[in-house]
Design a protein around this nucleic acid. Structure first.
Lengths: 146, 146
DNA sequence: TATTGTTATACTCTATAACTATA
DNA sequence: TATAGTTATAGAGTATAACAATA
């Protein structure tokens, strides 16, 4: 008996379906501020790490530098964060939250949590913890860049 | 305590990361045949339901009719399946597996299962079943079209 | 030589609306 | 009127390579 055996939806398919639903929910929770999931996470990363390099942002979001540039562009154009030269390395660019970015992040983060709570509400606390552990193990087993 | 509370990755983020890894793995497993995940699943749907309508294919894959057209186009151009008029309704188009499609599907399905087995191998049988149940409940709670 | 961020491409997935031919 | 499939568009995510400035 394999993991993804018929007849019913295999783990892979099920995973993709739930992931899509979760993403849709996430996106619509962010809609009032017109920001993407990547942008929301980028704001969180910047706040958590305090003026990280653009490369750090990419690494924490696990996206390509190419994509990080784009994400930061969108946020900078709206004045939610600002690029600053890295005093220690003139090749590097640091990214800082602006006051407007910090304020918006508070609201966004609240909405994001409310949305996640609603999405996972069908699972009780114990099962959510089960799920978290399963996902952590799967992630640890396959992440490439630790 | 909310579902997606800091400090460590919330359920939502974790879910997206694992989902991305799983998709990457799926895609590379399919690479030898140069078909996309949707195309692979479409072939499986057609085999399982025997000459379904194009709309049925879309429904089972949970994609828009627009996308189903594209998926079927790609497979038809390669002779893996064929469009046939629905004898019962001249608006409708049915989709049938060709011999070449059936042969390719055998190989693809084998590779897909091997890949999924490898991906979920870090979890023992009991934990995989746990995961499946959790995902089924989440899916059931949020699916829109039953 | 290697690294940082950028530019340039391209392909997939997703989403929506309008159109046609039937029913 | 409503439905089945198609055409037409557009935006987001992902991935890769090449490049300029700097280390």
């Amino acid at each position: 008996m394999t993991v993804d055996d018929a007849p019913e939806p295999g783990l892979t398919e099920l995973f993709q379906q739930v992931g899509r639903g979760l993403r849709r929910s996430f996106v619509s929770a962010l809609a009032p501020w017109d920001i993407s999931p990547h942008q929301a996470r980028a704001l969180m990363v910047v706040r958590r790490h305090g003026t990280p390099r653009l490369g750090d942002v990419a690494q924490h979001l696990r996206i390509a530098p190419r994509s990080a540039t784009e994400v930061v562009d969108g946020l900078e154009q709206r004045g939610l964060l600002a690029r600053e030269p890295d005093p220690a390395d003139r090749r590097a660019t640091c990214v800082a939250l602006t006051d407007a970015g910090a304020r918006l992040l508070d609201d966004v983060d609240r909405a994001r949590r409310v949305d996640a709570d609603a999405y996972f509400a069908v699972l009780d606390e114990r099962r959510r913890e089960q799920l978290r552990t399963l996902l952590l193990d799967l992630d640890a087993a396959h992440r490439t860049d630790p």
